[in-house]
Amino acid sequence: MEGKPFNDISYEQFLGEEKLMGSRCQKCGALFVPPRAICIKCYGTEMEWVEMKGKGKLAAFTCIAIGPPLMIKEGYDRKHPYVSGVVELEEGVRVVARIEGVDGSKPETIEIGTPLQVEFLHRGEVNNSKTFLAFKPL
């Protein structure tokens, strides 16, 4: 873990291992998820990996009816929108994630502040797989 560069590739590799990882500035303690190599608060460059507990609450969301080909392949369309949101983690940082277990065709039933639990969505074949970060209601 120590040797991994603090970038999106490492972040996605960790997601594949079902770990939600961020970087913490060793100088000022600021936390970044996905990780940053340089602290945007104090410009420090000494970072360390930190694993998130995977709990948070819904801060904002959208229900996407017109999706990209990838999502259409998964069966989402105008009648079955998928939900994408911003989740505020217990650790205090916010991440973008798919929101599962809610009805995207009824946005009025989805509530800001809903407690959420992390979920890892593995897609694709063994040698060509990708893991997407998701959250679902507790």
Partner: peptide, 8 residues
Amino acid sequence: NPVVAWPM
């Protein structure tokens, strides 16, 4: 005026 990405 259909939904693209609610509420948009």
